[in-house]
Amino acid sequence: MTSQFPAETSATGAFVRQKYQFQGRFSRDGSTPFPAEAGRYRLYVSLACPWAHRAVIVRGLLGLEDTISMAVVDPVRDERGWALRDGPGHSSDGVCGFEFLSEAYLRTDPGYQGRYTVPCIWDTVTKQLVTNNYPDITLDFETQFVDFQGPGAPDLYPEALRPEIDALNAVIYTDVNDGVYKAGFAASQAPYEEAVTRLFARLDALEEHLSDRRYLVGGQLTEADIRLFTTLVRFDAVYVGHFKCNLRRLVDYPNLWGYARDLFQRPGFRETVNFDHIKRHYYMTHERLNPSGVVPLGPISDWDAPHDRARLP
């Protein structure tokens, strides 16, 4: 097994996430090279990846399954990267015929040198990657594929709440979503401690924020909740131990833990969570963090326990 430990670290040993090269945008009005169309685009995801998980949830909540097809990669990578092959919870690619996700990247740019990341979207018409820039993908699903959304689809990015959603997303990304990676992949003590300190300061603030409201923004489910959920659902299973984010567990936060269960138990969330993929990916592909490749059995967490969040405004 070849390590997939990210190489992006600064001179001080701090983890620095790579920039995402493919940043095409979709358009409802055809003003970009990639107009919103049904049946044209294919979403590639890993059920282990929190960034890809966002796209899976939003695609389902908006009823875009028949508009944008989806392929799930094998959660365990080797030196060739993400593979598309048959297995529990994943399968070979019957649409584009890729055996490895790298093929999509290299067909788009034969000189591409970065990592082959999920989520990404392939255009079956122009035969190229549109985007691997995960923050844009869900926003475009929400705002540019409106004509293809199912009946009763929620407005996850309401225009009146966008400034508040964007501001909250920015700090949650820096301190929580990417914060766990900054801690886990830090190559020296100081950046690790800085990342963990900021992570738990932000979780403490979110615990207080959620003490008197059911959702993060505007009293309704939004993009902000989905972005936080995909980190929270992995927290105790992976980040506490594997990434050394162990000052506290999610279950130690009454409001955050109840909030996470509230979302998990909603239609459109539970069925997207695959703890087998999550644990096998993290524990079996980061040799420097877990040289043995042994996958832990725990933790035992009751995600179906009553959450009592419906009482909140």
Score class of each variant (00 low, 15 high):
residue 163 P to T: 00
residue 136 D to P: 00
residue 228 L to D: 05
residue 217 V to L: 14
residue 20 Y to H: 13
residue 133 N to C: 13
residue 78 D to W: 11
residue 260 A to N: 06
residue 129 L to D: 00
residue 32 T to P: 01
residue 234 R to H: 07
residue 310 A to Q: 14
residue 125 V to C: 03
residue 261 R to D: 07
residue 183 A to Q: 04
residue 266 R to M: 07
residue 24 G to E: 06
residue 88 P to M: 10
residue 308 D to N: 08
residue 301 S to M: 15
residue 191 P to C: 02
residue 84 L to F: 03
residue 268 G to Q: 00
residue 179 G to H: 09
residue 61 L to K: 04
residue 155 D to N: 11
residue 171 V to Q: 11
residue 71 A to S: 13
residue 143 T to E: 06
residue 52 A to V: 14
residue 198 R to A: 13
residue 278 I to Y: 07
residue 103 E to T: 05
residue 148 F to L: 14
residue 74 D to Y: 07
residue 19 K to R: 14
residue 134 Y to P: 10
residue 197 T to Y: 05
residue 77 R to Y: 11
residue 168 L to P: 02
residue 302 D to E: 14
residue 42 R to E: 08
residue 190 A to E: 14
residue 128 Q to T: 09
residue 145 F to G: 01
residue 305 A to M: 01
residue 64 L to W: 04
residue 250 L to D: 01
residue 180 V to S: 07
residue 71 A to I: 01
residue 257 W to K: 01
residue 190 A to I: 10
residue 143 T to I: 07
residue 217 V to S: 06
residue 208 E to F: 14
residue 127 K to T: 05
residue 133 N to M: 12
residue 219 G to D: 03
residue 37 E to D: 00
residue 173 Y to A: 15
residue 13 G to H: 01
residue 313 P to Q: 08
residue 256 L to W: 04
residue 87 G to Y: 12
residue 189 Q to A: 11
residue 259 Y to T: 10
residue 191 P to A: 06
residue 184 G to M: 10
residue 291 P to H: 01
residue 178 D to G: 13
residue 19 K to Y: 05
residue 256 L to V: 09
residue 16 V to T: 11
residue 261 R to Q: 05
residue 6 P to N: 08
residue 106 L to V: 12
residue 238 V to P: 03
residue 156 L to H: 03
residue 224 A to P: 12
residue 23 Q to G: 09
residue 309 R to K: 11
residue 57 I to K: 00
residue 120 C to L: 13
residue 53 H to P: 09
residue 311 R to A: 13
residue 1 M to Q: 12
